[in-house]
Design a protein around this nucleic acid. Structure first.
Lengths: 201, 201
DNA sequence: GTCTATATCCAGATAGAC
DNA sequence: GTCTATCTGGATATAGAC
């Protein structure tokens, strides 16, 4: 019996994943309120009624995706801070990996766009607002800490660390949005164009 | 009689401006489909019914704003190309002015956000799509031309001009979105952080 | 020109059959 | 678990009074 329960849960989770993945695509392409629940159901190849067996509402799907997005992003930031690299190496590594991710992974750009949209929009579910409020500053702070560290060692440029962290993320965001719009034809710029904003010499 | 007609037209245009200005604010804050026509009417301090004496539909308001946005942006690009400056001066000038504009002019950031939203979204009026299709690449091309020119003179960095133009605008876009979100508390980064991506030495 | 009231439509969510 | 049919609310747009 427990076997079956576990299996059922797996199937259930699989369905949820399938729905979430299609919803991410649609939300990123059209925004929350322009995406119809019927569109999501159609994309996931299930009836609209069935969708409500897996999620209570459109908002719940959206909130779930926002959670996922921050889990990935902030998880990656935490991981980066813990690595055994110099601050300069961390910044360069992060830029290289972020550009690679944007170019290769469709969902990565979509998550960036989703978070950008959600952060920029007043009309999102309250729960999403709460998560954003709580999680949104973390990436900026993490990069700022790394930059401050690197400035001590004289390996990174001596501009205001807050400014540098701001430019770091807004640049990545801008590129993510461009990619989300232009799709597969997007070719990431040479990373050296970006690294020169942060590194000396 | 002609007097009166002209005066009436002026009043009419004034009303339209008032509506457009409020609509810009709301579209930028919430997106097209999450903005209710009743919200726009309320913000413009007129009844919902009256709004339809000035615009046929919500879509028409949106299209008008997209037109305005590109008129400003592409007009500025054309103006920049015509100036009597070295390419390097043009790039630095553009960055300085864009950052100043973002910091000081609320509507400038809103127009950027509106265009970014619209470009990124599949669910916008067909007419808006047509305008975007036609106008969107112009700023990229203008900056690319300036950069190519500057590379000949050896005053600008020798990276791929397409990459540099891409980074130029996605960076500005990223900052505009950040500003549109964080409002008045936004302080633009030091421009030298950005100029170093393009200029030599 | 301006408002209030209303017709119409459509999307989110539910109910109930299989 | 899955579908079809339906309820309900709310938003766009219109009509008609002043």
């Amino acid at each position: 019996m427990t076997r079956n329960k576990e299996l059922n849960q797996k199937i259930r989770d699989g369905r949820r994943e399938q729905i979430l993945s299609k919803a991410l695509m649609l939300f990123a392409a059209r925004g929350l309120s322009a995406t119809k629940i019927s569109d999501i159901a159609k994309a996931a190849d299930i009836s609209q009624g069935l969708l409500y067996h897996y999620f209570e509402s459109k908002d719940e799907i959206f909130v779930e995706l926002i959670k996922n997005g921050f889990d990935r992003l902030n998880g990656a930031c935490r991981w980066l801070e813990d690595q055994d690299m110099t601050p300069k190496e961390k910044i360069v590594f992060a830029l290289v990996e972020l550009l690679k991710l944007l170019e290769q992974n469709e969902d990565a750009a979509r998550y960036h766009l989703l978070i950008a949209q959600a952060t920029a929009s007043e009309s999102i579910p309250d729960q999403a607002r709460v998560i954003i409020e709580k999680e949104n500053s973390y990436p900026y702070e993490a990069i700022e800490r790394i930059i401050i560290e690197g400035q001590k060692d004289d390996l990174l440029k001596k501009a205001d660390p807050k400014d540098l962290a701001l430019v770091f993320w807004t640049t990545i965001n801008g590129l993510a949005i461009y990619k989300a719009v232009h799709g597969k034809s997007f070719k990431a710029p040479d990373v050296s164009i970006l690294t020169c904003m942060f590194t000396k010499g």
